[in-house]
């Protein structure tokens, strides 16, 4: 037990927690926007892969880092648009369409990567985002060091939490998005386009998810690997239920998850000899299931989630 407290007191542990949480923050926010509009987006796992590949590829081909971020977001928006067309105007099964988008986005990414780089033994590297120095904040003890080690993408993720909260709770657009997810007929009666709002929410949400992927290749690592997303998208789908579709709780959930993951890596080195390493490897997935089971009972799903809506049919 003492070891755990010692770990909890180190700055590097909290810095790592925030780093691990960053892609999840993007992913949970993206899933939150989609689901608030009434559409489950299981394309998330593939969109992560697409964002990771596209962002990395753009930088590797000579774009700037922020150019890569934009390309990743566009790639995510593109695959989100496919999901949106299939599930909103066509009203097809959101489960199957989402899985289809995941498989499609993953295979497009892998195929593009292999076609661009047919015979590489080790993945080529790019110059990733460097830690960002914030003049006064990084001088602070403890907190300063934790934030000091983060890259611009982590800052972008934190900013997005605030932005999504603001848009969802303080703007008419947010009211409209929540309304199409709860009661699309009421939105239609007001003369707003249910299709338009849902499609827009899915595209924007998917672009955010892709930034989570881009963080992996452009900040956490400096290259693209097959299988590097490794279920992070699915974890976000569990976390958004745990966060009851609230941006602030989404941040909290992602941070808790990051802290747990950072802790298990450090525990592994402490007690690695006694416990098989796989126990620690499996822990994040087990934790997600546990969180889901705890949250599921009291979860208040958006009322029109999974329900297609057709104009002119009541």
């Amino acid at each position: 037990m003492i070891e755990i407290f010692q770990i909890l007191l180190t700055e590097s542990f909290w810095a790592a927690s925030l780093r691990i949480a960053t892609p999840l923050i993007f992913g949970v926010l993206g899933a939150l926007i989609c689901e608030k509009s009434g559409v489950l987006n299981l394309g998330i796992e593939g969109i992560f892969v697409a964002g990771a590949m596209a962002g990395w590829m753009a930088v590797w081909l000579g774009a700037g880092l922020w150019g890569g971020v934009v390309v990743a977001a566009l790639a995510g928006g593109f695959f989100g648009l496919i999901h949106a067309i299939l599930t909103v105007p066509l009203g097809l099964s959101q489960h199957v369409s989402g899985l289809g988008v995941t498989l499609f986005a993953t295979s497009v990414s892998y195929f593009s990567y292999r076609t661009a780089l047919p015979n590489v033994s080790s993945p080529p590297r790019i110059e990733p985002f460097r830690p960002l120095e914030i003049p006064i904040l990084s001088e602070l003890p403890f907190i300063g060091t934790i934030l000091f080690q983060q890259t611009a993408l982590t800052w972008l993720a934190l900013f997005m939490v605030g932005l999504v909260w603001y848009v969802m709770n303080r703007t008419g657009l947010g009211v409209a998005i929540k309304a199409v997810g709860d009661n699309p007929n009421s939105v239609d009666a007001q003369g707003l386009s249910v299709y338009g709002i849902r499609i827009g929410a899915i595209v924007v949400g998917s672009a955010l998810m892709a930034l989570g992927g881009a963080f992996l290749t452009m900040s956490a690592f400096d290259a693209f690997f097959f299988g590097m997303v490794n279920g992070r998208g699915w974890i976000c789908i569990a976390l958004v239920i745990f966060a009851s579709w609230k941006p602030g709780k989404a941040l909290l959930g992602a941070l808790l998850f990051g802290a747990f993951d950072a802790l298990q890596v450090r525990m592994q080195t402490e007690v690695g000899a006694k416990v098989p390493s796989q126990v620690f490897l499996a822990a994040p997935y087990v934790l997600s299931i546990v969180a889901l089971v705890i949250a599921a009972r009291r979860a208040e799903y958006p009322r029109a989630l999974l329900t297609p809506w057709f104009k002119g049919q009541r």
Binding site: G231, W234, I237, L292
Partner: peptide
Amino acid sequence: ADEVVTTLLLNFI
């Protein structure tokens, strides 16, 4: 608990 998420995560476990 949504079985989509649990079965997907179980694959990794």
